[in-house]
Design a protein around this nucleic acid. Structure first.
Lengths: 174, 174
DNA sequence: CCTTATATTCTGATATTACTGAAAGGATCG
DNA sequence: CGATCCTTTCAGTAATATCAGAATATAAGG
């Protein structure tokens, strides 16, 4: 791997910081940034060297990125090492990440809300108020889930179309 | 403040964990959960006591929630202390949070991408490839921004309407 | 003004998370 | 099979984020 250009550094560092703000490990995000910018798949050792992190750290981080389905290992003729490459379709990439996060965080929250509503004892003081609040929150999460299910099935182009329809509706309403 | 019911505890704890996964401080999220479930505004001291955190911690966290615009101080007759209450409209609440996060994290990323594209030296090796990648990413962020701008202007009801239109389009296509 | 009630800021301590380096585990080659 | 190359796991260490409590500031009451 060649040395990073100033530009690449800027992108990778920013992406790393960005990651931390959204609960994504800095190194994981940086590796993703590096692979995203790289025209060719890179072996773990090169990644470690380029980003100045331990080889083992790269291993763990790559595994995480693979779990999300946005990085995969490819093989290069005459090289026993795994080479890693990032998906390049940005929309698809974010869709995958969102899908994972929904599964890991949104779904459990929906379950928690359902459980709370089921457990709610109507005889308890303030039960009505609590139910109201819980139901409002649950409704929101159901809607988000519905929205997500649709995005999942729609091709990228249709999403953009919807986006434009939104613009029209806004103009009419305004 | 009365003791928390098991249900409230469950909700508050989950919300706190949820927060950490999205880069939001656990206490901040817990306080928000508490206020969301509370039928009346609560003074900082009660919040501290109920959640077993330091008074100072509540102060800082409340400030953060106020910055987002989802919690505000209200006054109670005969009490010098500030009482805090959460917004109850869930959709509006998330809209505000998303708006803030966009401002804090998405906008700076757009700027970074623009700067990178501006700084990109065409004579540099691999400049074409880098430009392609940066532009793809920048395009995505522009689209997200556009989408956000629209959501911001649309009333909640219209968002739901769009949601249903998505369903129809999907059914036609399928 | 001085006193008291309340809120905020700051700093050191604590807890959490991330990371490294060493060691173990697998795979491929001769 | 043994040697070599590569990857993963793990335990200890380092870095970061969070928090409690003291110190400070602000405001209201007398």
């Amino acid at each position: 791997m060649a040395e990073l250009t100033g530009l690449q550094k800027q992108y990778i560092l920013h992406w790393g910081e960005m990651g931390t703000k959204w609960g994504i490990n800095r190194t994981v995000a940086q590796i993703h940034a590096l692979l995203y910018l790289s025209p060719k798949a890179l072996p773990a050792e090169d990644i470690a060297e380029t980003l100045s992190v331990a080889r083992s750290n790269v291993s763990t981080s790559i595994r995480e990125l693979e779990t999300w389905g946005i990085v995969r290992a490819v093989h290069v003729l005459g090289d026993r090492r795994e080479h890693y490459e990032s998906m390049k379709d940005v929309w698809e990439m974010f869709r995958l990440v969102i899908e994972q996060r929904k599964r890991r965080e949104i779904d459990p929250t929906r379950e928690m809300l359902r459980r709370c509503l089921a457990d709610l004892d109507p005889k308890e003081a303030g039960a009505d108020y609590t139910r109201e609040r819980l139901e409002a929150m649950a409704g929101f999460f159901e809607a988000v889930t519905e929205l997500h299910d649709q995005m999942k099935r729609l091709p990228t182009g249709t999403v953009r179309k919807l986006l434009r329809m939104g613009t029209k509706m806004r103009k009419k309403a305004g």
